[in-house]
Design a protein around this nucleic acid. Sequence first.
DNA 1: CTAAATGCAAAATTTTTGCAGTCCC
DNA 2: GGGACTGCAAAAATTTTGCATTTAG
Lengths: 148, 148
Amino acid sequence: MLHHKDTIRKKMARFEQACRDAGLKITHQRLEIYRELAGAHDHPTAEMLYTRLRERLPTLSLDTVYRTLATLEEQHIITRVQTDESQARYEAEMTPHHHVMCRKCGRITDFHWTFFDAARLPEDVAGWGTIEDRKVTVRGICRQCAAE
Amino acid sequence: MLHHKDTIRKKMARFEQACRDAGLKITHQRLEIYRELAGAHDHPTAEMLYTRLRERLPTLSLDTVYRTLATLEEQHIITRVQTDESQARYEAEMTPHHHVMCRKCGRITDFHWTFFDAARLPEDVAGWGTIEDRKVTVRGICRQCAAE
DNA sequence: CTAAATGCAAAATTTTTGCAGTCCC
DNA sequence: GGGACTGCAAAAATTTTGCATTTAG
């Protein structure tokens, strides 16, 4: 618990610095949107964040959530997760990791795979341009959904 | 050229069989939508296919394109490509392959990586559930965009 | 013939924008 | 104080749906 609190606190401190570095103002809304996203494990959509934050910030508007997420993504402070759903999902986790997603419930879980991260890409990709990032997406049916 | 023609013809024959197997009627629109997608290299959106097809099929409607793509995806005859754009992109290529996408121009290019396809997934993923598919997405800046 | 598929128009969903007022630096 | 940010409302963009008509099997 304490450990978790510390982690969030550290994340928030790093976030504030990242905002300063990017020339972004540190507003109450931005702090809370980031805090909510950083604490979430479920790669939430703008709407999900909005609903959760509404309880704490009754005056928050949905378009601010959209605008904030877009701004933070531009600055590479958060990431827009690739899905084939209609709504965009986001995550605050910026260290290299990968995703497993369930075809049924749609839940996305993070995993790490250092072997892959270190593997050399095939020839034709190496010549394509400048590579910045590589990610694995595994899809299937999770245990809970399979048990039905 | 001849070879390419043959490939398309074969693809169309396989497509018709896949429709029969899935109990889908083989309509003019379906054939043309699939033909266009199978011949495209750029992972087009519904709107892009609609615009291209409009020349050949002036009466085609956009919602038919949407409905057809959704149906074919359900039957695993085509795939909805994961991107972080607002519009959904599709591809007819169903053999295992991966994507490189340019952060600037947004172009998506296929590549193959059998070494990765054969690699064993990490422990924690193996226990997650039943894996059906794994894909790599590489991102960066392509050569053309870098030359600016 | 009959169920499925299409086209049209209208709605629903998701995201973006203009503008006036507010708040950080 | 000034420019960036927010909230509101309205619009734009993308996708889905209801229904009458047409078409494949």
